[in-house]
């Protein structure tokens, strides 16, 4: 659709694509003929065959689509925005956050609050860092703005707690020091989903 066409899309005659529908019968005899035609056309049996085929395929050809959820989970995209994670520096094990406060500033839901202070080496240290998950809308701005890739979105989407404050503390979001070797680098918002090639049918460039 060109720009001109786009601007005038609600004006005058429009480019509707008309469906090729049959005329609705008005006379009684036509209605009768329609009923007879539909009765003997066998469409109902086509419907029966479709479900039976689905059943046979599901039972004997392994096309069962059910995922037994708590026991098996579907892989989620690296772009998925769930509960935040605080990453550590791989070399020293110290947390990456430098206390710049950008995430607190950019947070549109106003749910991040942090306090910082200078430690004995005159480095900034995070004394308190909480995310109110009652307010967080998981927009991902905090992860995008973070200059150190310190706060990122993780993949933990099953949350249960007596109160939301229980899983909003800095220490809970921080990668445990034991699992430092398991820490994965956040791929960011441009990250491609796994097996993306299989899902793409035709690139827009082909047109």
């Amino acid at each position: 659709m060109g720009l001109e066409q786009f601007k005038n899309r609600n004006i005058g005659t429009q480019n509707y694509k008309m469906l090729d529908l049959e005329q609705v019968p008005t006379r009684n005899f036509d209605k009768f003929k329609q009923v007879v035609k539909r009765t003997f056309k066998g469409e109902l049996f086509v419907g029966l065959w479709v479900t039976l085929r689905a059943m046979i395929n599901a039972l004997f050809r392994g096309e069962m689509h059910a995922v037994k959820y708590p026991f098996e989970k579907l892989p989620i995209s690296p772009r998925y925005r769930a509960i935040h994670e605080m990453l550590r520096l791989l070399e020293s094990g110290h947390y990456r956050c430098i206390g710049c406060g950008l995430c607190e500033k950019i947070c549109i839901a106003n749910c991040i609050s942090m306090n910082t202070r200078y430690d004995e080496n005159q480095r900034k240290e995070v004394s308190e860092y909480t995310i109110n998950f009652g307010r967080c809308i998981f927009c991902g701005f905090c992860a995008e703005v973070c200059p150190e890739l310190a706060i990122v979105h993780g993949s933990r989407y099953e949350n249960a707690s007596e109160q939301r404050a229980s899983f909003s503390l800095f220490e809970d979001m921080l990668t445990p020091i034991d699992n430092l070797n398991l820490q994965q680098e956040y791929q960011g918002f441009g990250a491609v989903t796994p097996y993306a090639d299989d899902h793409i049918k035709k690139t827009p460039l082909a047109y």
Binding site: M55, N57, A58
Partner: peptide, 13 residues
Amino acid sequence: KVLAFMQRRLGPM
């Protein structure tokens, strides 16, 4: 069970 199979689900398991 039958409805589940016809909808490619497992039903009660």
